[in-house]
Design a binder for these strands. Structure first.
Lengths: 149, 149
DNA sequence: TTTTCTGCAAATTCTTTGCATCTGT
DNA sequence: ACAGATGCAAAGAATTTGCAGAAAA
């Protein structure tokens, strides 16, 4: 059983929800495919295994997964007009951030202690509670940097 | 003449574009209203001054403003389903980041030297070029923190 | 057996586009 | 005059919703 299926089962048990075939399929796919798929990409893959599945089910599943905090919804694609599709990012194993290459669209995940400091500093100086942070860096990856010239 | 109108005029002159009444109105509104309005909020305000203006014009104007780098399109609203509308953030005077209160939706802008460091570290260790960064912190503002109890 | 979920289709929401007309330059 | 912008209405993409039937607990 995949990690997400296990986590989700626990949550469902606590709130009286049900682990259905469709949910298991979507969760397993999310876990396996990795990266930051859009709802449509997820749908395409699960449909290959169960052609009767419906996009609404994918959206609904992603909806409560995001509410439960098991995945984060992000807009990684840079610029306008490409940032309209949400991308889903399993929030595991820990808070992480993203570098997006504006040339080829490649996404690299990373962790940074600087962000932890930025959170602390901001919460101290402003007297607020910071729960989570999302940093996205935009730039050119090595390959695109070379290709540019 | 507002700052944005001035900046935009310069850009338009360079690329053979035209400063129209509608653009002046939209730019002035963006400058005056501040914050991080959605296209619809902008439209509502400009329509009050010129009822003949059309939403497409607002979208088109925001489109090239974003391309020109005079405004940034962001998804500040936290969670799913609220993050669907783009918000437009005049990119002035310098790169800045956002704290979003998940209780009341209030947005606070701030600058942080830590982010500069995170950018540098990432670009050095990965051999990429980082052009810009966007950090959003989510949490509870002081008032919402109190209200929670 | 009782909720909860799913599939379906229709509806919404946000945004873009085609085209005739109008307007800066 | 002429390239470029606008308004309008219609199209489009992504996502949500209402509801009757299906399926977990």
């Amino acid at each position: 059983m995949s990690r997400l299926v296990a986590q989700a089962s626990g949550i469902l048990r606590q709130c009286g929800g049900r682990m259905t075939t469709q949910r298991r399929l979507i969760l397993g796919t999310l876990d396996e495919m990795g990266g930051h798929p859009t709802a449509e990409q997820i749908y395409r893959i699960v449909r290959a295994q169960d052609p009767s599945i419906n996009p609404s089910t994918v959206y609904r599943t992603l909806g409560w997964l995001a509410e439960a905090g098991l995945v984060d919804a992000r807009h990684l694609a840079p610029g306008r007009s490409s940032g309209r599709r949400e991308q889903f990012d399993p929030s595991f194993p820990a808070e992480h951030h993203h570098f997006v290459c504006t040339g080829c669209g490649k996404v690299v995940e990373f962790a940074s202690p600087h962000i932890e400091r930025a959170k602390q500093e901001f919460s101290h100086t402003q007297g607020v509670t910071v729960e989570r942070a999302s940093l996205t860096l935009y730039g050119l990856c090595a390959a695109c940097e070379i290709a540019k010239e």
